[in-house]
Every structure is written in C-alpha cells, then in structure tokens.
Deep mutational scan, measured.
Amino acid sequence: NNDALSPAIRRLLAEWNLDASAIKGTGVGGRLTREDVEKHLAKA
C-alpha cells in the first residue's frame, strides 16, 4: 500500500524502478525503511 510509504521511500523506489511489494519492510508496522530498500538493491 503506497499510503504507508514516506515521500523519501516513494522517490527512492521510483528512482530505481522498484516495486514496493517485492521488498519486506522492517519498520514500524512493516513499513519500508531506507535500509530495507538499500539491502534489496545490494542483493540485486
């Protein structure tokens, strides 16, 4: 759900053309954090 994404995370996902549903969020309530996105990018 994009409503739970911060503007910074939305921008990062758009910049790298990533799908938020493909990344497991570790923040409060399962929210994506910058670290989650960076770890996903490191694996790719």
Rank of each mutant, 00 (worst) to 15 (best):
A44E: 11
L5N: 05
I23D: 01
V37K: 00
I23V: 07
S21Q: 10
D3F: 05
A4P: 12
A14K: 12
G25Y: 02
L18N: 02
A20G: 07
E38H: 08
L13D: 00
T26Y: 03
L18Y: 03
K43S: 12
E38R: 09
N17L: 06
L12V: 04
A22W: 11
V37F: 03
L12M: 09
D36T: 01
E38W: 15
G30M: 03
N2V: 13
E38Y: 15
N17F: 06
N1I: 12
R31L: 12
P7W: 07
E15Y: 15
K24W: 08
G27Y: 03
R10Y: 06
L13R: 00
D3K: 10
G30E: 04
R10L: 14
N2L: 12
A14Q: 11
D36E: 01
G29H: 07
D3S: 10
N2W: 05
D19W: 08
T26L: 05
A20Q: 06
N1W: 08
L13W: 03
R10G: 04
E35Y: 11
V28Q: 11
E38F: 15
I9Q: 02
L41P: 01
D3T: 10
L18F: 04
R34W: 14
K24L: 12
G29W: 05
S21D: 10
S6G: 07
A22G: 06
R10I: 13
A8C: 15
D19H: 07
V37L: 08
I23Y: 01
S21F: 09
V28R: 10
A4H: 14
L12N: 00
N2Q: 12
L18W: 03
S6W: 07
S21H: 07
L41N: 03
E35F: 09
T26S: 08
S6M: 05
L12F: 06
G27V: 02
I23S: 01
T33E: 03
E35R: 13
A42S: 10
N17E: 09
N2E: 14
T33V: 04
I23E: 00
H40E: 06
A14V: 07
E38K: 07
N1E: 14
L32T: 02
H40P: 00
G27F: 04
T26K: 02
I23Q: 01
D19I: 07
A20W: 07
N1T: 13
L12S: 00
L13A: 01
R34L: 15
L18G: 04
V28C: 11
V37Q: 00
A44S: 12
A20R: 05
S6R: 04
G25A: 10
L5M: 10
D3G: 11
A42Q: 13
A42L: 13
R34H: 08
I9E: 01
K43T: 12
R31G: 06
A22H: 11
I9A: 02
R34M: 15
K39G: 08
K39Y: 10
G27K: 01
V37W: 02
S6E: 13
A8G: 08
P7T: 10
I9G: 00
D19T: 08
A14N: 08
A44K: 12
E38V: 14
E35P: 05
A22D: 15
L5W: 05
S21E: 10
H40T: 05
A44L: 15
P7L: 14
R11S: 08
N17S: 08
A44N: 12
L5H: 06
R31V: 13
D3H: 11
A8S: 11
A20N: 02
L41H: 12
G27T: 02
A4K: 12
L32R: 01
E15W: 15
L13K: 00
R11W: 13
L13I: 06
I9K: 00
D36I: 02
A44M: 15
K24T: 14
G27M: 03
R11N: 10
S6N: 06
R31M: 14
N2K: 11
L32M: 05
L18V: 09
D19Q: 07
I9T: 03
R34A: 10
K43R: 13
P7H: 11
S21P: 04
E15G: 05
K24E: 12
R11K: 14
L12W: 06
A8P: 04
L13V: 04
R10Q: 11
A8M: 10
L13G: 00
R34F: 15
I23H: 00
T33G: 01
L12A: 03
L32H: 00
I23W: 04
G29F: 06
R34V: 15
D19C: 11
K39R: 14
T33C: 05
A14E: 15
L5E: 05
I23K: 00
N1S: 13
E35C: 12
R10D: 05
A42I: 10
A20F: 06
V37H: 00
A42R: 12
E38G: 04
E35N: 08
L5Y: 06
G30L: 02
A20P: 14
L12H: 01
A42M: 12
L18M: 06
N17Y: 05
L32C: 05
S6P: 11
L5I: 13
N1D: 15
N17T: 03
L13S: 00
G29A: 09
A42P: 05
S6K: 03
L18I: 14
E38L: 15
T26W: 04
N1R: 07
E15T: 09
G27P: 02
A22V: 11
I9N: 00
R10E: 08
P7G: 07
E15Q: 14
G29Q: 07
D3N: 11
R31Y: 07
T33S: 05
K39S: 09
A44G: 09
D19S: 08
L5Q: 08
I9D: 00
A8H: 08
I23F: 05
A4F: 15
L13H: 00
L32P: 03
A14H: 09
V28Y: 10
A14S: 08
L32D: 00
V37Y: 02
E15R: 15
G25N: 02
A4G: 14
R10K: 11
L18Q: 03
A22E: 15
A44V: 15
T26Q: 02
N1Q: 13
